[in-house]
Amino acid sequence: MNRSEVLERFNPQKDNLLGILHGLQNGNPNNYLTESDLKAVAEYLNITFSHVFGVVTYYTMFSLKQRGKYIIRICNSPVCNMKRSLSLADEIRDLLGIGVGETTGDMLFTLEYTECLGRCDVAPSIMVAEDVYGNVTRKSLASIIKKYK
């Protein structure tokens, strides 16, 4: 979906800002919002650029930086921490050569932390794109990643 198609789905009301930003970001193959996206949204909703910028930078799901096709999110909640979720970041560094906040050279994966994914019963959990995985071990992580390559 291109930018004008996304905008057309929403009435030009300020309260649709988050929904529009989600739509634009999801429509971008690199999972991010460009400066011209922000300008277009500001114009469409008749609000200031700084307001849009302020909202984008407040919410952790929005990015102003190019990201990979698949975002790997490691749950950073206390339960997943307790079950060594942070060691999964080391494993991903070994597997893909990226740290938290970084993107692979082929623009396929970006690694991020996320707050509680609500999968505490199968901690540690991670999310790849829209898929959630539980009881993730260093070993199972490799086969999960493989599915997206």
């Binding site: 300020k14 309260d15 988050l18 909703l45 407040y58 952790t60 799901m61 996320t114």
Partner: peptide, 25 residues
């Protein structure tokens, strides 16, 4: 449906209202 975008604080009802209105939480 309205979607949040990654903010624990927006689960607090008054902050949620701000977010629903298209603002920072």
């Amino acid at each position: 449906i309205r979607l949040g975008a990654g903010s624990y604080l927006c689960g607090e009802e008054l902050t949620l209202l701000e977010s629903m209105e298209g603002k920072r939480g």
